[in-house]
Amino acid sequence: MPSDEELRRCKSGDPDAFADLVQEYYQSVYQMCWYLMNSDLNAADATQETFLRAFQAIRKFRGNASIRTWLFSICIRVCSDIRRQAERHQRHPLTSTVGLEWICGSAAGSAQNPRVSACREEMRRKVREAVCQLPESHRRVVVLVAFEELSHEEAGRLLGLRTATVTWYMKEARKRLRAILDRDLLENVQSRQEANESDGQGK
């Protein structure tokens, strides 16, 4: 969360002050863009556009919401715009293009056991694919609530939805994810949770 001084500098148009803000929220914004755009390339573009618009509009930021929520609202708008633009021009169809190269690359860079690493990458791929299969409305809620850990009220305010609707979307999303994801994956996680709990009790 930027301090008032940093925010004041950002509002005065100081790019260096804005750099701190970008650094702090870069990963969150990129992640949201990635899930909404479902593409590395488009996610990078959307992230850049989000911060550019934020830089242009930060003078008007009144501090009613947190800067993170404000950035997410810009991000959602930018993703919608890019999507609409792409659909209109049909130049860059936004298909599900999960960046396998990037995943492989990051996996290759991992210092873990190759087998564990491959398994982990496989799970990540499955999770991402599962989230990407959700409808966009559900996906937005999942990203905000599950990844960014916003409360249902905050997510509802951000998306212009009622809290109950957010809760219902979240419930539906979990149900669908459960159906999509491999049972093995869930069991694996559940067993790991139980093991962690028993370890904690033993200690």
């Binding site: 870069y26 990963q27 990129y30 992640q31 990635w34 899930y35 590395d40 996610a43 990078a44 990037w102 690359g105 990051s106 982990r120 799970m123 990540r124 499955k126 999770v127 991402r128 989230v131 999942v142 599950a146 990844f147 979990r174 994810l177 459960r178 994801l181 994956l185 869930l186 996680v189 559940q190 949770q193």
Partner: peptide
């Protein structure tokens, strides 16, 4: 609830997208 937690846990553990290189 455990299942919900499990799903959220899975999402947080495996769903995190790291920025590009």
């Amino acid at each position: 609830l455990q299942q919900e937690d499990a799903i959220d846990e899975v999402l947080r553990e495996y769903g995190v997208i790291d920025p590009p290189e």
